[in-house]
């Protein structure tokens, strides 16, 4: 009987490292899940960060977040790619779009539209690419290149030869393309959604 007990406890000893590691992982994981749960949900409001960018692109005024598109009178429901639709008191429109560059969902872009469907301005609300790339593509010098575009945009490595081309930042091609993707989504969505009545 004693020998059996010894054999059993020996077996347990061998599993102890694995068990301890699993328990520690479980505990840490649990704590982190709780922390994530405590992060306030910002999907229904315009965060301060976003508000600052809106004011930058469209000026001061009253801004509203459109939650139900069809109810507001738009032709389509909120596309998956668009995070938020922001409307100003003078009916000008901006989209918050999140795209992936080098890192997944690394770029949080605000695209403001003109009434004729061309791009009014592009701002970077948040970016978590590598520091160098992040700085370069957030610069006004690059983002201003999108102003006035109304068709599909392609990033090229040289001076643009047509309206559909925008020169990217050479060492930040992937991030540049991510921003162009966001702008394209904005242009397309604006064309599709129409004007509310």
């Amino acid at each position: 009987m004693n020998e059996e007990k010894k054999a059993v406890s020996l077996k347990f000893e061998q599993f102890k490292p694995a068990i301890v590691l699993s328990v520690i992982i479980a505990l840490v994981g649990f704590v982190l899940i709780v922390c994530v749960g405590l992060i306030p949900d910002t999907s229904g409001i315009i965060t301060e960060k976003l508000m600052v960018k809106c004011a930058e692109l469209m000026g001061e005024g009253e801004y509203e977040l459109v939650t139900d598109w069809e109810e507001a009178g738009y032709k389509i429901a909120k596309p998956r790619e668009v995070e938020k639709l922001i409307v100003k008191d003078d009916k000008s429109v901006a989209f918050e779009i999140i795209t992936s560059g080098f890192n997944k969902d690394a770029l949080d872009i605000l695209v403001a539209m003109n009434k004729d469907g061309s791009v009014r301005g592009v701002a970077v609300a948040a970016i978590s690419e590598s520091p160098d790339q992040s700085k370069k593509v957030s610069a006004a010098e690059f983002l201003d290149r999108f102003k006035g575009k109304s068709g599909e945009i392609v990033i090229v490595g040289r001076s643009p030869e047509s309206d559909g081309e925008v020169e990217g930042i050479t060492s930040a091609t992937i991030s540049s393309k991510a921003i162009a993707e966001a702008v394209n989504i904005a242009i397309e969505t604006y064309a599709e959604m129409g004007v509310p009545n």
């Binding site: 061998q14 599993f15 490292p17 694995a18 068990i19 301890v20 590691l21 699993s22 520690i24 992982i25 479980a26 994981g29 649990f30 982190l32 899940i33 994530v36 749960g37």
Partner: peptide
């Protein structure tokens, strides 16, 4: 919040396996 339970469970299983491998 519940979307994180699956990855953590996965992590626990990996941890257990790693523990066994290291002990061996």
């Amino acid at each position: 919040m519940f979307t994180y339970v699956l990855p953590v469970a996965f992590f626990i299983i990996i941890g257990f396996a790693v523990g066994i491998i290291l002990t061996a």
